[in-house]
């Protein structure tokens, strides 16, 4: 499947359809997104613990603050 079709399919999962011209504009940006995915993956720190096996040495920066309660914006 070419990139444009992949993008259209992914957006369709969200019930969003774009014109051909809009999809064309997203193709290079999507290519760059996949490249950045590799860049970020390559930055992540892990420790080898067995042949072919690693354990992550960093956690996602997510906020879990049970004392704060829900959003009230």
């Amino acid at each position: 499947m070419d990139k444009k079709a992949i993008i259209a399919a992914k957006l369709a999962e969200w019930n969003l359809s774009l014109t051909d011209s809009e999809l064309d504009q997203l193709v290079p940006a999507y290519d760059n997104l996949l490249r950045w995915q590799d860049v970020v993956h390559g930055m992540l720190r892990s420790r080898s613990i067995a042949d072919g096996m690693v354990i992550p040495e960093s956690e996602p920066l997510l906020t879990y603050s049970p004392e704060k309660g829900g959003s009230n914006r």
């Binding site: 992914k10 999507y30 995915q37 970020v40 992540l44 992550p56 960093s58 996602p60």
Partner: peptide, 19 residues
């Protein structure tokens, strides 16, 4: 629309890199 192309795994890797 572009943001919808970011997978959940990708988003979490970004958050690890941020940390």
């Amino acid at each position: 629309a572009y943001g919808l192309l970011v997978s959940g795994a990708h988003y979490l890797m970004v958050q690890r890199a941020r940390a």
